[in-house]
Design a binder for these strands. Structure first.
Lengths: 226, 226
DNA sequence: CCTCGACCAGCAGAATCCGCATCGTTTTCC
DNA sequence: GGAAAACGATGCGGATTCTGCTGGTCGAGG
């Protein structure tokens, strides 16, 4: 995981950084709120570990509030000498995800960091692909158009998945042969045409707006606009 | 939010329940681990608040482990009198998301519950099921044991998926016929035995610890312990 | 109007898959 | 200890399902 540590106490920072790195994480370090905010807002982290009190106008709570107001949902763990319940509540209410008071055991910090990192926050793999009113569910291996279920065969499913993963882009025959058929040569037949045709029958028949478009001398493309 | 509280101490339970309800949440309450696990596995909650120590064999940690092995990712907050760092780490490592020690201020509990509830993790369907070193990926329809890929047929996949979704629980033959075969009658043959046998050959052969266990006169169960 | 690329219907081969019967093995209970 | 019940393994036949090709037609673009 890529973790941003914002901590002004050099001793604590060194300690935390070392431990997290030994646990296999990448750690960036900022020593004040301003720099921390800038980094957090401009780069992509899996988690922020923030000191609650920071020099330079921007403290931990303020930093989180700003981030959250920008729509940044990166998990935040507060680290603070302010141990009163009120302070903890304030940190959590501001948008923090966890709050650990100093002094703390590193084992607990690590456990909490990893608990936070476990959640499928940002990089959850897509389970559904959608193009206009066409929906493909990778989990149930199901295709729906306009809410109505459509049965497709395995190869058709792979073909459609590949088209939808590149919606709005032309997909060449060669690409399809490679990715859908695992052919690394030209079979000299019209296999692709046939399967595209079958897909069309199932997906586009009965709808006025077709989704699968032919790009002459190039390949195929799926998208809502003609 | 719909919250499941599993707590055997009646006094604490009343206190927590009342407070959470006043904050606008719906609270279901179980007084032991067994009931809690059953509820958590069979119904949909936004969060679980678990006592760490529970009567009746299934304690909090065990409960979470079982849920997680079934692919259930519901956020879990531990509530416990066991305040040692080791205990906290253990709870978090087992799959808990937060750990609050008794005695606690209700304001903090509420803040932590709501911090957990903020996460967008609730509606993310599990894409992988895991039991020990066996991993089933619903997206790629792939099975791996100890990092090695194992090919399984469609029906075997469905069977395994169903077993893993109920890891640690006995799955009866009738259940399997219903859910995996869509049979609503007894075919009077040993279809199930055959497929279980084939699965075993692929999954357990060559490993000293088998994962699929027979429960005589009942059905089958998948889990790490014998 | 001609040509080339694309499209479609039907067909037949094939591969996969699945369930059953049968026989062997283990467990239980008397 | 032995019989019966439950469970486990294997080989085979069949059937569904899928897939790719052929051959003829269509239509866009020059």
């Amino acid at each position: 995981m890529r973790i941003l540590l914002v901590e002004d106490d050099a001793e604590v920072a060194r300690f935390v950084r070392k431990g997290l790195q030994e646990a296999g994480h990448t750690v960036e370090h900022a020593t004040n709120g301003r720099d921390g905010l800038f980094l957090a807002a401009s780069e992509q982290f899996d988690m922020l570990v923030l000191d609650r009190m920071l020099p330079g106008g921007v403290d931990g709570v303020r930093l989180v509030e700003t981030l959250r107001s920008q729509g940044n949902r990166t998990p935040v763990l507060f680290l603070s000498a302010l141990s009163a319940v009120d302070e903890r509540v304030k940190g959590l209410k501001a948008g923090g995800d966890d709050y650990l008071t100093k002094p703390f055991a590193f084992a607990e910090l690590l456990a909490r960091v990893e608990a936070l990192g476990r959640r499928p926050s940002v990089d959850a793999p897509a389970t559904k692909l959608r193009v206009a009113d066409l929906e493909l569910d990778l989990l149930s291996r199901t295709v729906m158009r306009a809410g109505k279920r459509i049965d497709v065969q395995p190869r058709e499913f792979r073909l459609l998945e590949h088209l939808m993963r590149h919606a709005g882009q032309v997909v060449t025959r060669t690409m399809l042969l490679e990715k859908v058929w695992d052919y690394h040569f030209d079979p000299q037949t019209n296999v692709i045409d046939v399967h595209v045709s079958r897909l069309r029958q199932k997906l586009d028949k009965g709808f006025d707006r077709p989704l699968i478009h032919t790009v002459r001398n190039a390949g195929y493309m799926i998208r809502a606009e003609p």
